[in-house]
Design a protein around this nucleic acid. Structure first.
Lengths: 146, 146
DNA sequence: ATTTACAGGACTAGTTTGGTCCTGTATTCT
DNA sequence: AGAATACAGGACCAAACTAGTCCTGTAAAT
């Protein structure tokens, strides 16, 4: 299935939601939970991580909340995924060298890393700006497909 | 991390190993386990699934074993992944419609499906034939990147 | 017949995931 | 100053999934 975790999925949805608002505005965790229909505790957890990773700026106290650290077209889906579950890699071995015990005898390592790289590139090409307008279909060409 | 399960990883390695041999030849599960240094029971499990899914042809009894059901350049990595863990989809929603309760209120569904499609295409372009020669670097262009 | 090897399961330990909750600290408003 | 708000940073837990083993049955070759 090649799936991302729900936490990461929430992260993408929340970042996109923030990207829908005017630049510089902020929203608090509760507002975001309501607008996206996601469980509030989860939303808080995800936003905290994203802020710690530098993708969001946070403001505490009354009237506090979160805002995007960069313009929507500067934040790729790959960045969001990386912030929440580490670098995009299809296999264990791809994430860090020396982890896989089969490394010396593995015949597919190099090409598979290549495949990982392509998947990563696809995700790097899609930004939050591309996600905010559901009616716009992103041309395949813009996603790197000939 | 966007990772595939170890079972699927094994599947790719095993299929690639089979693709290294002359067309039409077969290998049994034990041979394959030894050649790939993967645990034998796991190898058996994966091969059984791949055979059931039609990617391998199996022969029982003495001198039995497994062989590719198609030439290596006709079997994509996407097919192997799909056989072992269902259709390639980044999110739950992408795998089947109506599964996700947030579907009506989700603003990123359509573009995310698009992203999934691109990832899937990347994986469809890479065949077992591309995996068998580790020294050959697959040009990015062949993977659909401009 | 006997041996080999796949078919199709059930089963288990360990890890991960999704989700909740609690304490602390910074900020704003009265 | 004091109260209320909202983020920071955890610990914690149940349920699901993974990785791995093992057992019984059946088909094929010798």
């Amino acid at each position: 299935m090649l799936r991302i975790s729900k936490l990461t999925d929430y992260g993408v949805v929340l970042m996109a939601e923030l990207a829908r608002d005017p630049a510089g505005s902020t929203q608090n965790a509760r507002e975001l939970a309501e607008r996206t229909n996601l469980p509030f505790p989860m939303v808080g957890k995800v936003l905290k991580t994203l802020a710690r990773e530098g993708l969001l700026v946070s403001h505490r106290g009354s009237k506090g909340g979160y805002g995007l650290a960069q313009p929507p077209d500067q934040i790729s889906v790959a960045k969001v995924i990386a912030a929440l579950e580490g670098p995009v890699a299809i296999t264990e071995c791809g994430a860090a060298p020396g982890v896989c015990e089969h490394e010396p005898s593995c015949h597919v390592r190099t090409p598979m890393e290549r495949v990982s790289a392509v998947v990563a590139q696809s995700l790097e090409r899609v930004t939050l700006a591309d996600l905010v307008h559901p009616s716009d279909i992103i041309p395949l060409e813009d996603l790197g497909v000939r």
